[in-house]
Simulated scan of single mutants.
Amino acid sequence: MAQPGADHGLAAVLAEPLQGFIRYLSSEKRHAAHTCKSYQDDILRFGQWAIETESCRAWADLTTHHLRRYVAALSRAGLGGRSIARHLSAIRRFYDYLLREHLAKDNPVIDVRAPKAARRLPRVADVDQLSQLLDATPDDPLEARDLCMFELLYSSGLRLSELSNLDLTSIDRRGGEVRVLGKGSKERVLPVGRRALEALARWLDLRPQLAVSNEPALFVSRRGERLSNRSIQSRLRRWGVKNGADQRLHPHLLRHSFASHMLESSGDLRAVQELLGHADISTTQIYTHLDFQHLAKVYDQSHPRARRVRSKPDGSKS
Rank of each mutant, 00 (worst) to 15 (best):
R195I: 01
G240A: 06
V192M: 05
R238Y: 04
L197H: 02
D167H: 04
S234N: 14
S161A: 12
L160W: 08
K242S: 10
T169G: 14
S228H: 15
G182I: 01
V192R: 10
L236R: 06
L206M: 12
R145D: 03
L163N: 12
V180N: 13
E187Q: 12
R235C: 08
S164K: 15
R159H: 11
S185A: 11
R179T: 02
S155Y: 06
L152V: 01
R238D: 11
L168A: 09
L181V: 01
L181N: 05
N229Y: 13
L218A: 10
E151H: 01
L168G: 11
L153G: 00
E198L: 04
D205P: 02
D135C: 09
R222V: 08
I232D: 07
S185R: 14
E151A: 00
R194I: 00
R223T: 15
L227M: 15
L227A: 11
G240C: 05
G224A: 11
K242R: 15
L227R: 13
R173Y: 01
S155Q: 04
V220E: 08
P141D: 13
S185K: 12
E187M: 04
S221H: 12
L142E: 15
R202M: 03
I232W: 11
R238I: 00
D139E: 14
Y154T: 02
S164D: 09
R202T: 06
I171H: 14
D205N: 04
N214R: 15
L197D: 05
W203R: 02
L181S: 03
G193S: 09
R235I: 06
D139H: 11
R195W: 08
G175N: 06
D135S: 15
L236D: 08
R237W: 04
L158V: 03
S221A: 14
G184A: 06
G184D: 07
R223Q: 15
R237Y: 04
L236T: 04
A201L: 07
R188S: 02
R238S: 09
G193I: 01
L158Q: 12
V220P: 05
S161G: 05
M149F: 01
R188W: 02
R173D: 02
L147H: 07
P208K: 09
L163K: 13
S231A: 15
L181Y: 02
D140F: 01
R188F: 00
S231W: 05
R159S: 11
R222Y: 08
G184Y: 10
R207T: 00
E177H: 07
R195S: 11
A199T: 01
C148S: 10
P191F: 04
L158K: 07
A211R: 06
G224D: 09
L147W: 00
L236W: 02
E177S: 11
V220D: 09
F219N: 13
V241C: 11
N229C: 14
D205C: 04
Q209C: 08
L197T: 03
S228M: 14
R226C: 10
A196R: 05
D140A: 05
L190P: 01
R195G: 05
S221Q: 08
D139R: 13
Q233C: 07
W203I: 01
S170A: 11
R179W: 06
E198W: 02
G193Y: 04
L227P: 13
L236Q: 09
K183P: 01
K183M: 02
N229L: 14
R237N: 09
R173V: 00
Y154C: 03
A136L: 06
R226D: 10
R207C: 00
S156Q: 04
